[in-house]
């Protein structure tokens, strides 16, 4: 809509895409490394925004728009809301990020995963160039084209998303609801406090 492919110089496009890509990765790294949940949310926000820039460069401005709308507008806010609700940042930052899985293992494993995938894409697959401009322009990424496809070819999926959101809403509201009628805390459960303490002690023992 605003930025259509080809209306800006190719070099600038690729530069922008590289920058946005690096930004997205940086945001994701912030998520992983941030000591506090609040910063992790901000990292997600960076990633989301950078990705939407990529979408625009990929000639998909509608999805970029929706991405900003849903993620920046709803998901991130929701996360922030929960962070505030649980008052995490003020009282306790994650004391040690060292979880049960060692750093080396986790990084090694995910890196191996990434390398395998990238090798597959770079060295083994010969991908086609982006569809010839003729095709690309013949299906302008207007709201109309998407809308028509959505409601013609993906009608069932569209309805299914509605059902999904209904189910998610029911589940979320029910689970997060504080005071159910006729409910009482399960007496069979152990008292949370000592349990948590024991777990913390166990975790502490493992750390060194």
């Amino acid at each position: 809509m605003i930025v259509l492919e080809g209306s800006i110089p190719a070099a600038l496009t690729s530069l922008l895409s590289v920058v946005a890509g690096l930004g997205a990765i940086a945001g994701a790294l912030v998520v992983v490394t941030a000591p506090r949940a609040f910063r992790a949310v901000m990292g997600l926000l960076i990633t989301v925004v950078c990705l939407s820039i990529e979408y625009v460069l990929l000639a998909a401005p509608v999805i970029a728009f929706i991405q900003i709308l849903v993620y920046a507008g709803a998901v991130v806010v929701l996360f922030l809301f929960v962070v505030m609700l649980l008052d995490l940042d003020g009282s306790r930052a994650e004391s040690s990020s060292r979880g049960p899985v060692r750093w080396e293992w986790a990084i090694g494993g995910t890196a191996a995963f990434f390398m395998i995938g990238v090798c597959g894409i770079y060295y083994l697959a010969k991908l086609p160039a982006p569809a010839a401009p003729a095709v690309s322009e013949a299906t302008p990424d207007g709201v109309q084209a998407i809308g028509v496809t959505l409601l013609r070819d993906y009608l069932v999926s569209f309805e299914a998303v509605a059902v999904f959101l209904l189910a998610a809403a029911v589940a979320a509201i029910y689970v997060a609801h504080a005071h159910g009628r006729g409910e009482k805390a399960d007496p069979a459960e152990p008292d949370p406090a000592p349990e948590a303490g024991a777990a913390g002690a166990a975790a502490g023992k493992e750390a060194p």
Partner: peptide, 27 residues
Amino acid sequence: RLLQAGRVQAYGMALVLGGAAMLLYLL
């Protein structure tokens, strides 16, 4: 005992490693 604290992460690790192994084998 080893996994008691936060086994979820270890499980997630299994997902990643299993996926990596499968991808590697297939490729």
